[in-house]
Amino acid sequence: MKEINCAVIEQAVARLCQQANIELGEDIVRAMQQALANEPAPAGRAVLEELIENAALARRERLAICQDTGMAIIFVKIGQDVRITGGILTDAINAGVSRGYREGYLRASVVSDPLLRVNTGDNTPAVIHYDLVAGDALEITVAPKGFGSENMSAVKLFSPSAGVEGVKHFVLETIRNAGSNPCPPIIVGIGLGGSLDKCTELAKTALLRSVGEYNPQPHLRALEEELLEAANQTGIGPSGLGGRTTALAVHVEAYPTHIASLPVAVNMSCHATRHASVTL
């Protein structure tokens, strides 16, 4: 049994909020540099150059990569031999978000009620996903999610007869409909299977994977590669101004599902697909 104090958790979450919002992942910077080398459209090239420069500037000057510092989506893997002391885990995480956003000069973008819409002032509460795992470690991932892209996401529960062709058509239709809105180049997280709730969670989880890594299952990797190529043939391009770089990656995650359904969730994300993790 390992004891972890809430004060340690709060401090870790605060630091992760700032790290994720300020330091763009090297995998994404590399992907944009590769895209720039292959992008023939002048307007598209200019946007990629700006985004690469923006990431370097943000890291150097300790500024947020994007002013939409997102809603804090937090994934917690809690070892079942861990005991939390000094408070409630969820409260400690939210206290960390509050502190991280305030002390990091990150934008408070959360309203307390979807209809009444009063800003909570400190970007709380977070959306927290808990997973109970073996061992005595606590792994926390903070993934700030911008909503310009979130709003362009879509979910559909197909009949099994729709098959892989139905999935492909739906994903590409979602990408085309989104056009310039999600700030291309995008990263597309796709959840296949499960239930209505499970497939959307899978799609979100898919965004945590490093760009350049593929699903280990051959048929899902093939789907990722085919969808990425098709996305980049739409012509949407960086910022939607036209070009061959519409997506940097398409990540698919799958889960068993019901005999009656083929759930598909498409979670759209911009180049600032941010996440930072710590293991306590």
Partner: peptide, 30 residues
């Protein structure tokens, strides 16, 4: 801003001789 506008907005832009500019989405620090 960034992103698409409705046809009604495009018509209104034309009617009033206005203009819609884009800045690069995601380049907030720059």
């Amino acid at each position: 801003g960034k992103g698409m506008r409705t046809e009604a907005v495009v018509q209104s832009i034309v009617q009033h001789g206005a203009i819609y500019f884009g800045a690069t989405g995601g380049a907030g620090a720059l």
